Amino acid sequence: MRASTNIELTKAWATVPDVARAQERYDAIVKLRRDFPRGATPAEALAGVQDAVIASFTATGKWPTDFARTASKAHADAVVWHAEIVALRRAEDALKFAAEDTRDSMAPDVLTHLDGRLTEILSAAKDASTALGDVTTAEQAIDAGADALDAWRRLAGLLGDFRNVRNAQADVLRAVTYGDEQARMRVWFAQGHGEVRGVRLDDVPEHIRSVMCSHAYTVEYLVWLAQSGKGYVPTSFDDLAADVEAATEPLAYDDHGPLYDYSPRVTPIPAPQPPKVFAHSSTPNLDDSKPRPSAPKPNAAVSDREATPVF
Protein backbone atom coordinates (compact mmCIF):
# COMPACT_ATOMS: atom_id res chain seq x y z
CA MET A 1 0.00 0.00 0.00
CA ARG A 2 1.12 3.57 -0.58
CA ALA A 3 2.00 4.71 2.92
CA SER A 4 1.40 8.36 3.79
CA THR A 5 1.82 10.53 6.88
CA ASN A 6 -0.44 13.20 5.37
CA ILE A 7 -3.44 13.34 7.72
CA GLU A 8 -5.64 15.03 5.10
CA LEU A 9 -4.94 12.25 2.61
CA THR A 10 -5.56 9.54 5.19
CA LYS A 11 -8.87 11.09 6.21
CA ALA A 12 -9.87 11.57 2.58
CA TRP A 13 -9.32 7.91 1.75
CA ALA A 14 -11.24 6.89 4.86
CA THR A 15 -14.33 8.70 3.54
CA VAL A 16 -14.58 6.30 0.56
CA PRO A 17 -16.24 3.07 1.82
CA ASP A 18 -14.75 0.78 -0.82
CA VAL A 19 -11.25 2.06 -0.16
CA ALA A 20 -11.69 1.85 3.61
CA ARG A 21 -12.93 -1.75 3.28
CA ALA A 22 -10.03 -2.73 1.00
CA GLN A 23 -7.56 -1.15 3.40
CA GLU A 24 -9.16 -2.98 6.33
CA ARG A 25 -8.85 -6.32 4.54
CA TYR A 26 -5.23 -5.66 3.67
CA ASP A 27 -4.31 -4.63 7.20
CA ALA A 28 -6.00 -7.78 8.56
CA ILE A 29 -4.09 -10.14 6.27
CA VAL A 30 -0.80 -8.42 7.09
CA LYS A 31 -1.45 -8.95 10.81
CA LEU A 32 -2.33 -12.62 10.25
CA ARG A 33 0.84 -13.19 8.26
CA ARG A 34 3.03 -11.47 10.86
CA ASP A 35 1.42 -13.32 13.80
CA PHE A 36 1.66 -16.71 12.11
CA PRO A 37 4.10 -18.93 14.09
CA ARG A 38 7.54 -19.52 12.63
CA GLY A 39 8.11 -22.90 11.03
CA ALA A 40 10.21 -24.85 8.57
CA THR A 41 9.71 -25.91 4.98
CA PRO A 42 9.32 -29.65 4.28
CA ALA A 43 12.95 -29.86 3.15
CA GLU A 44 14.16 -28.02 6.26
CA ALA A 45 12.03 -30.27 8.51
CA LEU A 46 13.47 -33.48 6.99
CA ALA A 47 17.00 -32.10 7.20
CA GLY A 48 16.45 -31.39 10.91
CA VAL A 49 15.27 -34.95 11.61
CA GLN A 50 18.19 -36.37 9.65
CA ASP A 51 20.73 -34.20 11.46
CA ALA A 52 19.31 -35.30 14.86
CA VAL A 53 19.47 -39.01 13.97
CA ILE A 54 23.03 -38.71 12.68
CA ALA A 55 24.11 -36.90 15.84
CA SER A 56 22.42 -39.57 18.02
CA PHE A 57 24.02 -42.45 16.13
CA THR A 58 27.42 -40.76 16.35
CA ALA A 59 27.04 -40.52 20.13
CA THR A 60 25.41 -43.90 20.90
CA GLY A 61 26.07 -46.10 17.92
CA LYS A 62 22.37 -46.96 17.72
CA TRP A 63 20.00 -46.09 14.85
CA PRO A 64 16.49 -45.25 16.05
CA THR A 65 13.76 -47.67 14.98
CA ASP A 66 11.15 -44.87 14.72
CA PHE A 67 13.09 -42.79 12.19
CA ALA A 68 10.52 -43.26 9.43
CA ARG A 69 7.61 -42.31 11.67
CA THR A 70 9.46 -39.27 13.06
CA ALA A 71 10.53 -38.10 9.60
CA SER A 72 7.02 -38.63 8.18
CA LYS A 73 5.39 -36.60 10.94
CA ALA A 74 7.94 -33.73 10.66
CA HIS A 75 7.45 -33.62 6.90
CA ALA A 76 3.64 -33.68 7.15
CA ASP A 77 3.59 -30.90 9.77
CA ALA A 78 5.97 -28.84 7.65
CA VAL A 79 3.83 -29.31 4.53
CA VAL A 80 0.77 -27.98 6.38
CA TRP A 81 2.70 -25.01 7.81
CA HIS A 82 4.33 -24.17 4.49
CA ALA A 83 1.03 -24.36 2.60
CA GLU A 84 -0.61 -21.89 4.98
CA ILE A 85 2.26 -19.39 5.09
CA VAL A 86 2.42 -19.38 1.28
CA ALA A 87 -1.35 -18.82 1.14
CA LEU A 88 -1.02 -15.90 3.58
CA ARG A 89 1.75 -14.29 1.52
CA ARG A 90 -0.20 -14.70 -1.72
CA ALA A 91 -3.31 -13.26 -0.07
CA GLU A 92 -1.29 -10.27 1.16
CA ASP A 93 0.00 -9.56 -2.36
CA ALA A 94 -3.44 -10.01 -3.92
CA LEU A 95 -5.15 -7.74 -1.39
CA LYS A 96 -2.41 -5.16 -1.80
CA PHE A 97 -2.95 -4.94 -5.56
CA ALA A 98 -6.74 -5.00 -5.11
CA ALA A 99 -6.58 -2.13 -2.64
CA GLU A 100 -4.36 -0.10 -4.99
CA ASP A 101 -6.74 -0.68 -7.89
CA THR A 102 -9.65 0.37 -5.70
CA ARG A 103 -7.83 3.54 -4.70
CA ASP A 104 -7.10 4.42 -8.31
CA SER A 105 -10.68 3.80 -9.43
CA MET A 106 -12.03 5.88 -6.55
CA ALA A 107 -9.56 8.75 -7.03
CA PRO A 108 -12.26 11.19 -8.27
CA ASP A 109 -14.22 10.62 -5.03
CA VAL A 110 -11.26 11.38 -2.79
CA LEU A 111 -10.30 14.42 -4.89
CA THR A 112 -13.87 15.68 -4.55
CA HIS A 113 -13.53 15.29 -0.78
CA LEU A 114 -10.25 17.23 -0.86
CA ASP A 115 -11.96 19.98 -2.86
CA GLY A 116 -14.57 20.22 -0.10
CA ARG A 117 -11.83 20.39 2.55
CA LEU A 118 -10.12 23.15 0.59
CA THR A 119 -13.37 25.12 0.50
CA GLU A 120 -13.67 24.79 4.29
CA ILE A 121 -10.09 25.92 4.84
CA LEU A 122 -10.38 28.90 2.50
CA SER A 123 -13.68 29.95 4.07
CA ALA A 124 -12.08 29.95 7.53
CA ALA A 125 -9.04 31.79 6.16
CA LYS A 126 -11.25 34.46 4.60
CA ASP A 127 -13.02 35.03 7.91
CA ALA A 128 -9.72 35.26 9.79
CA SER A 129 -8.17 37.61 7.25
CA THR A 130 -10.68 40.39 7.99
CA ALA A 131 -8.71 41.30 11.13
CA LEU A 132 -5.39 41.54 9.30
CA GLY A 133 -5.93 44.72 7.33
CA ASP A 134 -2.74 45.39 5.37
CA VAL A 135 -0.66 42.92 7.41
CA THR A 136 1.32 40.51 5.23
CA THR A 137 4.08 39.28 7.58
CA ALA A 138 4.36 37.91 11.13
CA GLU A 139 6.37 40.96 12.20
CA GLN A 140 3.64 43.29 10.99
CA ALA A 141 1.05 41.19 12.82
CA ILE A 142 2.99 41.55 16.10
CA ASP A 143 3.22 45.31 15.61
CA ALA A 144 -0.47 45.57 14.67
CA GLY A 145 -1.72 44.22 17.99
CA ALA A 146 -3.77 41.43 19.51
CA ASP A 147 -6.54 41.06 16.90
CA ALA A 148 -4.15 40.90 13.97
CA LEU A 149 -1.80 38.61 15.87
CA ASP A 150 -4.59 36.18 16.77
CA ALA A 151 -5.76 36.19 13.14
CA TRP A 152 -2.21 35.51 11.98
CA ARG A 153 -1.85 32.56 14.35
CA ARG A 154 -5.14 31.12 13.15
CA LEU A 155 -4.08 31.54 9.53
CA ALA A 156 -0.74 29.88 10.25
CA GLY A 157 -2.62 26.83 11.55
CA LEU A 158 -4.88 26.81 8.49
CA LEU A 159 -1.79 27.06 6.29
CA GLY A 160 -0.63 23.64 7.55
CA ASP A 161 -4.00 22.12 6.63
CA PHE A 162 -3.86 23.87 3.25
CA ARG A 163 -0.42 22.43 2.49
CA ASN A 164 -1.63 18.95 3.40
CA VAL A 165 -4.58 19.27 1.02
CA ARG A 166 -2.35 20.43 -1.84
CA ASN A 167 0.17 17.66 -1.19
CA ALA A 168 -2.66 15.11 -1.06
CA GLN A 169 -4.03 16.48 -4.33
CA ALA A 170 -0.66 16.03 -6.05
CA ASP A 171 -0.19 12.54 -4.54
CA VAL A 172 -3.54 11.25 -5.82
CA LEU A 173 -3.19 12.78 -9.29
CA ARG A 174 0.32 11.37 -9.68
CA ALA A 175 -0.93 7.91 -8.69
CA VAL A 176 -3.58 7.79 -11.43
CA THR A 177 -1.54 9.26 -14.32
CA TYR A 178 1.15 7.57 -16.33
CA GLY A 179 3.72 8.37 -19.01
CA ASP A 180 2.94 11.45 -21.08
CA GLU A 181 0.04 12.53 -18.86
CA GLN A 182 2.23 12.55 -15.77
CA ALA A 183 4.96 14.50 -17.57
CA ARG A 184 2.44 17.10 -18.76
CA MET A 185 0.99 17.38 -15.27
CA ARG A 186 4.43 18.07 -13.78
CA VAL A 187 4.91 20.90 -16.28
CA TRP A 188 1.47 22.34 -15.51
CA PHE A 189 2.07 22.32 -11.76
CA ALA A 190 5.44 24.01 -12.28
CA GLN A 191 3.64 26.71 -14.29
CA GLY A 192 1.18 27.35 -11.44
CA HIS A 193 -1.86 25.49 -12.77
CA GLY A 194 -4.15 23.46 -10.51
CA GLU A 195 -4.47 26.25 -7.93
CA VAL A 196 -7.25 28.51 -9.22
CA ARG A 197 -10.08 27.92 -11.66
CA GLY A 198 -11.27 30.43 -14.25
CA VAL A 199 -8.30 32.77 -13.81
CA ARG A 200 -5.68 33.48 -16.46
CA LEU A 201 -2.25 33.17 -14.89
CA ASP A 202 -1.14 36.32 -16.71
CA ASP A 203 -3.69 38.21 -14.62
CA VAL A 204 -2.29 36.94 -11.29
CA PRO A 205 0.12 39.27 -9.41
CA GLU A 206 3.72 38.27 -10.00
CA HIS A 207 4.57 37.54 -6.33
CA ILE A 208 1.45 35.38 -6.01
CA ARG A 209 2.17 33.51 -9.23
CA SER A 210 5.69 32.82 -7.96
CA VAL A 211 4.17 30.97 -4.99
CA MET A 212 1.81 29.06 -7.28
CA CYS A 213 4.79 27.81 -9.29
CA SER A 214 7.08 26.97 -6.36
CA HIS A 215 4.31 25.67 -4.03
CA ALA A 216 6.16 27.35 -1.14
CA TYR A 217 2.85 28.45 0.37
CA THR A 218 2.66 31.43 2.72
CA VAL A 219 -0.02 33.06 4.85
CA GLU A 220 -0.15 35.95 2.38
CA TYR A 221 -0.85 33.55 -0.46
CA LEU A 222 -3.50 31.73 1.58
CA VAL A 223 -5.27 35.05 2.25
CA TRP A 224 -5.10 36.03 -1.43
CA LEU A 225 -6.52 32.68 -2.53
CA ALA A 226 -9.29 32.81 0.09
CA GLN A 227 -10.33 36.30 -0.98
CA SER A 228 -10.21 35.44 -4.69
CA GLY A 229 -12.85 32.73 -4.27
CA LYS A 230 -11.23 30.76 -7.12
CA GLY A 231 -9.32 28.05 -5.26
CA TYR A 232 -10.15 24.46 -6.22
CA VAL A 233 -8.87 20.87 -6.37
CA PRO A 234 -8.99 19.19 -9.83
CA THR A 235 -11.04 15.99 -9.61
CA SER A 236 -9.18 14.26 -12.47
CA PHE A 237 -6.45 14.72 -15.05
CA ASP A 238 -9.08 15.74 -17.62
CA ASP A 239 -10.46 18.35 -15.21
CA LEU A 240 -6.97 19.80 -14.78
CA ALA A 241 -6.34 19.73 -18.55
CA ALA A 242 -9.59 21.62 -19.21
CA ASP A 243 -8.63 24.27 -16.67
CA VAL A 244 -5.17 24.66 -18.23
CA GLU A 245 -6.72 25.10 -21.67
CA ALA A 246 -9.18 27.70 -20.38
CA ALA A 247 -6.42 29.59 -18.55
CA THR A 248 -4.10 29.76 -21.55
CA GLU A 249 -6.44 30.21 -24.54
CA PRO A 250 -6.41 33.60 -26.37
CA LEU A 251 -8.54 36.40 -24.99
CA ALA A 252 -10.47 36.64 -28.29
CA TYR A 253 -10.54 34.46 -31.35
CA ASP A 254 -12.73 33.71 -34.37
CA ASP A 255 -14.68 30.48 -33.93
CA HIS A 256 -15.23 30.24 -37.70
CA GLY A 257 -11.75 31.12 -38.90
CA PRO A 258 -11.03 33.75 -41.63
CA LEU A 259 -13.88 35.04 -43.77
CA TYR A 260 -13.91 34.42 -47.51
CA ASP A 261 -16.08 36.15 -50.19
CA TYR A 262 -17.64 33.44 -52.30
CA SER A 263 -20.11 35.75 -54.17
CA PRO A 264 -20.07 35.42 -58.02
CA ARG A 265 -17.65 37.68 -59.83
CA VAL A 266 -19.00 39.41 -63.00
CA THR A 267 -16.58 40.61 -65.67
CA PRO A 268 -18.05 43.58 -67.62
CA ILE A 269 -18.36 43.17 -71.41
CA PRO A 270 -16.19 45.79 -73.15
CA ALA A 271 -17.85 48.23 -75.60
CA PRO A 272 -17.54 47.02 -79.22
CA GLN A 273 -14.97 48.81 -81.41
CA PRO A 274 -15.89 49.92 -84.98
CA PRO A 275 -14.22 47.88 -87.73
CA LYS A 276 -11.02 49.32 -89.19
CA VAL A 277 -11.28 50.51 -92.85
CA PHE A 278 -8.03 51.20 -94.71
CA ALA A 279 -7.37 53.16 -97.95
CA HIS A 280 -6.94 49.95 -99.91
CA SER A 281 -10.19 48.45 -98.57
CA SER A 282 -13.08 47.83 -100.94
CA THR A 283 -16.71 46.97 -100.63
CA PRO A 284 -17.47 43.42 -101.66
CA ASN A 285 -19.40 43.14 -104.95
CA LEU A 286 -21.94 40.40 -104.38
CA ASP A 287 -23.98 40.97 -107.55
CA ASP A 288 -22.23 41.62 -110.90
CA SER A 289 -25.56 42.65 -112.47
CA LYS A 290 -25.51 45.84 -110.45
CA PRO A 291 -23.09 48.76 -110.47
CA ARG A 292 -19.93 48.20 -108.45
CA PRO A 293 -20.30 49.87 -105.00
CA SER A 294 -18.09 52.80 -104.20
CA ALA A 295 -15.06 52.31 -101.92
CA PRO A 296 -15.70 52.83 -98.18
CA LYS A 297 -14.35 55.85 -96.40
CA PRO A 298 -11.06 54.96 -94.64
CA ASN A 299 -10.88 55.37 -90.85
CA ALA A 300 -7.49 53.75 -90.19
CA ALA A 301 -4.03 53.68 -91.67
CA VAL A 302 -1.59 50.83 -92.00
CA SER A 303 1.34 51.36 -89.65
CA ASP A 304 4.89 51.16 -90.98
CA ARG A 305 6.58 47.83 -90.48
CA GLU A 306 9.39 47.86 -87.96
CA ALA A 307 12.81 47.92 -89.50
CA THR A 308 14.57 44.59 -89.37
CA PRO A 309 17.99 45.03 -87.80
CA VAL A 310 20.96 44.09 -89.97
CA PHE A 311 23.86 42.39 -88.25
Rank of each mutant, 00 (worst) to 15 (best):
Q191M: 03
D304Q: 12
L88H: 09
R305N: 01
I121C: 03
A300F: 15
Y232Q: 02
S123P: 03
K126A: 13
M212C: 00
A216W: 09
D147H: 01
E24R: 06
A52N: 07
G133K: 07
A241G: 06
R163M: 10
Y262Q: 11
A131C: 04
K96T: 01
G160Y: 10
E84L: 09
S105M: 00
K230Y: 12
V79P: 05
T112S: 13
G160D: 15
F237G: 06
M1R: 09
W13L: 15
G133L: 07
Q50P: 03
A151F: 15
I29P: 03
Y178F: 04
T267E: 15
P108K: 04
T119R: 02
L9N: 01
A68R: 02
L95M: 11
E24D: 06
A20P: 05
P291G: 05
E24W: 00
D18N: 10
W152D: 08
P108H: 07
R154W: 01
A295D: 15
R90S: 06
A98K: 12
R292D: 13
V135A: 12
D243P: 02
A22W: 00
E120A: 00
V244S: 02
D304T: 13
E249C: 09
L95N: 02
Y178K: 08
V277K: 13
G179F: 06
V86P: 10
N6P: 02
A271M: 13
G39N: 10
I54S: 00
Q169R: 14
L259S: 15
H75C: 09
A98R: 08
D104N: 13
A55S: 04
D161G: 03
A28Q: 11
T283S: 14
E249P: 02
A307W: 10
A156C: 11
D35P: 07
L159W: 05
T119L: 08
K31F: 10
I29R: 08
G116Y: 07
M185I: 01
A156Y: 10
R174Y: 14
L88T: 09
T60W: 05
K31V: 14
S105W: 12
A68K: 13
Q169S: 10
T130M: 07
A45V: 10
T102H: 11
L158Q: 03
N285V: 15
D202H: 11
A246W: 01
P268W: 14
G61C: 11
A168C: 04
E206A: 15
P17K: 01
K290R: 07
V172I: 12
E249H: 07
Q140S: 01
L114K: 05
L118E: 04
P272G: 04
P272V: 12
V110N: 05
Y221R: 05
A47M: 07
L95T: 01
A242E: 00
A94L: 09
G192Y: 00
